[in-house]
Design a protein around this nucleic acid. Sequence first.
RNA 1: GCUGGAUUCGUCUAGUUGGCCUAGGACGUAAGGUUUUCAUCCUUAAAAUCAGGGGUUCGAAUCCCCUAUCCAGUACCA
Length: 504
Amino acid sequence: MKVRVRFAPSPTGPLHIGGVRTALYNYLFAKKNGGDLLLRIEDTDQGRFVPGAEEYIIESFKWLGIKFDEGVGIGGPHAPYRQSERKDLYKKFADELLEKGFAYYAFDSAADLEAKRKEFEAVKKTFQYDVNTRLQMCNSLTLPKDEVEKRISNGEQYVIRFKYPENEDVVVDDLIRGTVKINTSLLDDKVLYKSDGMPTYHLANVVDDHLMEITHVIRGEEWLPSVPLHAMLYKAFGWEAPRFAHLPLLLKPDGNGKLSKRDGDRLGFPVFPLEWHDPKSGEISSGYREKGYLPEAVINFLALLGWNSGTEQEFFTLDELVENFSIEKISKSGAKFDLEKAKWFNHHYIQQMPDSALADLLTPVLAAKNLSFPQEKVLKGVAMIKERVHFTTELWEQCHYLFEAPCSYDEQAVKKRWKHGTPLHLTEISKFIDEKYSISQMHDFVMDYIQSNELNMGQIMNSFRLALVGETKGPDLFTLIDFLGVDETKKRLFKAIDVIGERE
RNA sequence: GCUGGAUUCGUCUAGUUGGCCUAGGACGUAAGGUUUUCAUCCUUAAAAUCAGGGGUUCGAAUCCCCUAUCCAGUACCA
């Protein structure tokens, strides 16, 4: 049987990075097994719908390079893939359960339920709508049949709840966690069909997974507690259940607990793949893409958060991940997010980028600053500074001095490197910077000058660098001079001498 | 509270059929090297009595039991 898996987000906001990992594992599993990955939008809660969220999700996967075979935005034999558009379909299945005695109508109002909860709380118990309490409630189990019919035909609001059989062990074999067992008497009668005419997640999810011929359900661990319900639902319908695999959670970098949007804001790293502009609050949440991460890096470190190949290999392309992926190697415990490692991965992938791709990122920055350089020059500059770039966003910051003269000089560096006599030495040295000399000749002249004046290297080289760069960073000085050219080098030298002047 | 899940260096993890584990790798950290500088890169080091306690066994991180801690769920949300 062909493997079919799905990623089924709810469009209630931007896609969380944990969700991205879930989708990634689904993708890897599908591709590894020659199967299909579908994208289904679970928008059964109309109250939580956020405009733009669905587009955001699609855009995110496009950026990451995760391709779906079927689903929203693609189409396929099981369309529509948006649950709100499948609304009419679910009632039939709820009715089937009603008929078979696996479900019942419940008329309890929100206020009734609230009162019941209070009542239990008063004696330090927790109210649960289950096998022990359902006979005290207002539902088709307690009301006479004609009364139920009357209420429904009168348009009274109702929900449909699942009716667990009493004292039955539900055993589910999870691909990651092994055997999970629970007794039905401990479970509460979940609502399957809401009073607004929409199914809840549980019903819609099971029905759609069955109809769409899903073979493996790979989702977050937060769903583990509802596995028994889902297993019972399949049983009640007489359907073969898919295999389940519950992924460990992504945890906060500090402390414990599930990674949340707040943590990203607090610790200064993105929790979302793309920048998100909240349509209601206007709030902006940062995204990996905008922060200068490469999709390859995000995929790579996300894949390794909870999975490993069993070898010592750490760098994997998407295709290599597919090749090496196996669900058995997914770990059981939650993984804390490690920002430093993500940075390390990103640095690696930036080094893998061709210089031309990096140059393409730089071109618009240059244009915005009204700086014009031949492509060849930009390429050369990029190659010079590439290895010190960790994020694409710091490209300009790492190479600005190649394209424009410093307009200020780092005060700390000036203090440390610009001594009494520096202007004089640099003036002397500027005489060696001339068209008629080669770079290696200039190098030798400078060295000779240092030696014959009994100076040390640092004294001259660092102040020279400070004049050219504005800071004490950057590539080899003579490589820099070669790049800037004689005129520009001298210009910067004189400017620094003029601006900084004599110091102690 | 109840139900379920988890527990190896600071972090991600290797370890899965008990012995080659004096517990390996990577990130980070520290020291050194390279460099005129920063970054990169290279080398080395520190870093887990395998949550704790009991067993079983000639032998346990690996099997069994108990305890602790953490996490998740406990909605007409997904």
